[in-house]
Design a binder for these strands. Structure first.
Length: 480
RNA sequence: GGCCCGGUCGUCUAGUGGACUAGGACGCAGCCCUUUCAAGGCUGAUAUCGCGGGUUCGAAUCCCGCCCGGGCUACCA
């Protein structure tokens, strides 16, 4: 049997990094087992669901490279893939259970239930209200609105073997007659998910641990329909550093934010995969390696805390390793960030030529664009005060001298430039440290930059000499 | 309160009865390299494996109790 897995987010905002991890583990297993990965939208909470959010989810997954075989946009044989378009299906399944006596119509109003709940709380503040089964044997009331409730067995227990947590047993007595269909015909989570998973032929449900409590009632539903059970795998949760639920209060949590901060999509996936899963001592993975290595046996059971520093370090690793980020991919990904700085009018080849300057150093594409800024301006921006201190009168003549010394170097490449500079330094009785920083600032506007000779080589003869001399002029004019 | 789940360096983790004087990674400190910043190399600090009992020649690994933490407890998902 071929495996079929799904990611079924609710479109109620951005795509949370924790949700991506769930999507990733499903996707990895689908790929590894040559099965199908399905994207389904669970939008039955009409209060909170937005079409804008659906767009964000689709865009984020595509950016990450987590494509789906069936689902939104791409279609498939078990669609539609949006729950609000499947209402007839839920109604029909609910009726089947009602006819079989496994579910019933409940005419209790929200107000009545609320009153009962309040009365119970008044008697015993810590008690949990459980629906008392008032309508279990009630006659049909064609004129009244109703919800459909599941007739939960009061004896026995549900046991399933979680692929991560192992055997989990829950007594049925803990279950109440939960609602399947709201009075407006829209299904509640447990019912909608089960009907969809059954009709879509899902073979393994992998989701966050916060859903573990939903599994027993869902299994009861499969049994009521006489449908074979899928496998279940629950993933530990991703918490904020302080142990709270990870939310925007703790910094960036959406995929979009990491995209904007210059993270490489596969680095995001790498970090997320290693969170709650391991493969010996290996920390860095390409997507293919992840597909190869992923398994459920090495998924951890304990919740973890998000670590932004390690995430950045993984991103750095991906940016500096050609195996993980090809030269072409690097150029593609850094270019938008160059544009975002207002830099225009450069060629792709120019970017490709400059990228080697920062490959080893840049931890993100935002960082890379910042370090490359000087390459794509007519004159470098002198942004830091420390840099300005090197452009003083005392250094003006040296800057001019280097320019002259390098003027006719052939070829204009790092080794020849370094040799020519060495010769000039020896003749002038100077050391490289006497001129390196002034020259660096003259060329890049910064006190920290890639190697001097690489900068000269990348900038080219005309622009290099121009910058050196312009800086000398400015230093002289500064009067200090 | 009830039901379910978890507990190894600050963090992510390796570990499934002996190779554990508990390993790796991130972070941190120092040194080397060096024209700057990174990268790289080396070194170091940080864990009585939640606590207490057992079982065993031997336990982070098995059993029991306790403690602590988390999830759920909706006509949310």
């Amino acid at each position: 049997m071929t495996t079929r897995l799904r990611f079924a987010p609710s479109p109620t905002g951005y795509l949370h990094i924790g949700g991506v991890r769930t999507a990733l583990f499903n996707w990895l297993w689908a790929r590894k087992t040559k099965g199908a990965f399905i994207l389904r939208i669970e939008d039955t909470d009409q209060e909170r669901s937005t079409t804008e959010s659906v767009r964000v989810i689709v865009d984020s997954l595509r950016w990450l490279g987590l494509g789906w075989d069936e689902g939104l946009d791409v279609g498939g044989p078990t669609g539609p893939y949006t729950q609000m378009e499947r209402l007839a299906l839920y109604r029909e399944h609910a009726e089947r259970l009602v006819h079989a006596g496994k579910a019933y119509r409940c005419y209790c109003t929200k107000e009545e239930l609320e009153a009962q709940r309040a009365a119970l709380k008044a008697r015993d503040p810590k008690a949990t209200f459980r629906y008392p089964g008032t309508c279990r044997a009630r006659r049909d009331e064609p004129a009244l609105p109703f919800v459909v409730r599941f007739r939960s067995p009061e004896a026995g227990a549900v046991t399933y073997v979680d692929k991560v947590f192992g055997a989990v047993t829950t007594p049925n007595a803990a279950q109440q007659d939960f609602v399947l269909l709201r009075s407006d015909g829209v299904p509640l989570y447990n019912f909608g998910a089960v009907v969809d998973d059954m009709t879509m032929g899902i073979t393994l449900v992998a989701r966050g641990r916060d859903h573990m409590v939903n599994t027993p009632p869902q299994i009861l539903l499969y049994e009521a329909f006489g449908h074979p059970l899928p496998e279940f795998a629950h993933l530990p949760m991703m918490l904020a550093p302080n142990g709270e639920k990870l939310s925007k209060r703790h910094g960036a949590v959406s995929v979009g934010e990491y995209q904007r901060q210059g993270y490489a999509p596969h680095a995001v996936l790498n970090y997320l995969a290693r969170f709650g899963w391991s493969h010996g001592d290996q920390e860095v993975f390409s997507l293919d390696e992840l597909v190869q290595a992923f398994d459920w046996e090495h998924c951890n059971k304990a919740d973890g805390k998000f670590d932004a520093k390690k995430f950045l370090a993984i991103n750095h690793e991906h940016l500096k390793t050609p195996r993980l980020t090809s030269d072409a991919a690097y150029v593609d990904q850094v270019t938008p960030f160059l544009h975002a700085r207002g830099l225009e009018g450069f060629e792709r080849a120019g970017v490709a030529g400059a990228v080697p300057l920062v490959r080893e150093r840049a931890t993100s594409f935002v960082d890379a664009a910042d370090r490359l800024d000087f390459v794509f301006r007519d004159r470098p921006l002198i942004e830091d005060a420390a840099g300005a201190k090197f452009l003083v009168k005392a250094n003006a003549s040296r800057l001019r001298d280097i320019a002259s010394a390098l003027e006719s170097v052939e070829p204009w490449a790092a080794p020849a430039l370094e040799a020519a500079t060495g010769a000039w330094l020896a003749g002038a009785g100077l050391q490289i440290k006497d001129v390196a920083q002034p020259a660096r600032v003259a060329l890049t506007g910064r006190t920290a930059s890639p190697g001097l000779f690489d900068v000269l080589a990348t900038l080219g003869r005309r622009r290099s000499l121009d910058r050196l001399r312009a800086a000398a002029d400015a230093a002289e004019a500064s009067g200090s």
